[in-house]
């Protein structure tokens, strides 16, 4: 790690002021991703602002929904009664990720900001990575790309967003509250992360110096009819190959009035499956309808030498996850 200065502010405003204009400043929350990247030499901040003591550690009812402070640990969010009873898919998703130790450290805001996962990005000794060095190329496209994206990628970058939590937040239409030098604003979860396009180095729409203060969950009366399905190479402590968050409202006869589906492990951002949602809304969840909806969602998917299986896997995962919820094996 390059030497850096360290500052531990007590208030949000102090943190934002401390950030200033410096390009090489980073906020550090749990540190589980940033420190990893600093050790690899991918992140080389000159200044660290430790936001771990800021008073953003509360979960409380907010309007009809719930507000989660940005510095709540992943563990505390997953365990919280308000989350478990109203948004169990978020609990499921968080608990499917990482390990108990990491979840104790990782914060909600930090999880939102974890960098995309790609072998070639994480190790600066690979010369080609448009994310680390814009214009240098993408080593993954013709390299070993089993874990990489099949949806929304660009010729510049095929890395995937590794978060489980964010997939659930996307399905839940969460809203990210941020505060920066120019004041406060809200960013919808679906707008928070970006597809790589020609600027894969920019992963979110957060502006320089902005600090995430909270995550708001809207009221979803059918939130218990939900499931997070994670498919991975080992049964725990592994990144998703494909994951699916489903929240839906089904009639007693199985007709789906509202459907929310998000995919993980397939794209540079948590992937809201709007096409599948549309295809399923108002329909009954029979295998044929589900398969058709999944086909539609993945119609534009494109795989590479080692990851094409993700396309079929994602389709089957959508079918399985929705079937699980409609079949009553959900969280309720």
């Amino acid at each position: 790690m390059k030497p850096f200065s360290y500052f531990c502010p007590a208030t949000v405003d102090e943190a934002i002021q401390g950030y200033g204009e410096a390009q090489e400043t980073r906020f550090i929350g749990g540190g589980t991703n940033l420190l990893d990247l600093m050790k690899m030499g991918v992140e080389r901040p000159a200044h660290l602002i430790d936001i771990g003591r800021l008073p953003l550690m509360k979960i409380s009812p907010h309007g009809d929904g719930v507000r989660i402070g940005a510095l709540i640990s992943n563990t505390d969010a997953a365990n919280h009664e308000l989350i478990r009873t109203r948004y169990p898919v978020l609990t499921e998703a968080i608990l499917a990720g990482a390990s108990p130790q990491l979840r104790n450290m990782a914060t909600m805001g930090g999880n939102l900001l974890q960098r995309t996962r790609c072998y070639y990005f994480y190790d600066p000794s690979y010369q080609e990575c448009n994310k680390r060095t814009p214009g240098s190329g993408c080593a993954a496209i013709d390299g070993y790309n089993r874990i990489h994206a099949v949806l929304g990628q660009s010729p510049q970058c095929i890395a995937v967003h590794p978060s489980d939590m964010c997939v659930a937040l996307t399905a839940l239409d969460a809203v990210v509250q941020v505060k920066g030098p120019h004041g406060e604003r809200s960013i919808n979860m679906t707008e928070f992360h970006r597809l790589p396009g020609d600027t894969p180095q920019v992963e979110t729409n957060l502006q320089s110096g902005e600090l995430i203060t909270a995550i708001d969950l809207p009221s979803i009366p059918y939130g218990k009819q939900s499931h997070y399905l994670k498919i991975r190479d080992r049964h725990s402590y592994a990144f998703a190959l494909v994951s699916v968050a489903v929240v839906l409202d089904a009639d007693e006869d199985g007709t789906m009035r509202h459907v929310r589906i998000a995919l993980g492990g397939v794209a540079h951002k948590p992937w809201r499956a709007t096409k599948a949602e549309k295809a399923l809304t108002g329909e009954k969840a029979d295998k044929k309808t589900l398969r058709a909806a999944a086909e539609e969602e993945l119609a534009d998917a494109h795989g590479y030498e080692h990851n094409s299986f993700k396309i079929e896997l994602a389709k089957r995962a959508i079918v399985r996850a929705v079937t699980t919820v409609v079949g009553g094996q959900q969280n309720g």
Partner: peptide, 18 residues
């Protein structure tokens, strides 16, 4: 490149307890 790309314990999978 002649390289093993998953040179870490997150991606070189050995079994965990589960």
């Amino acid at each position: 490149l002649g390289r093993w790309v998953n040179n870490n314990l997150a991606e070189y999978h050995v079994p965990v307890n589960a």
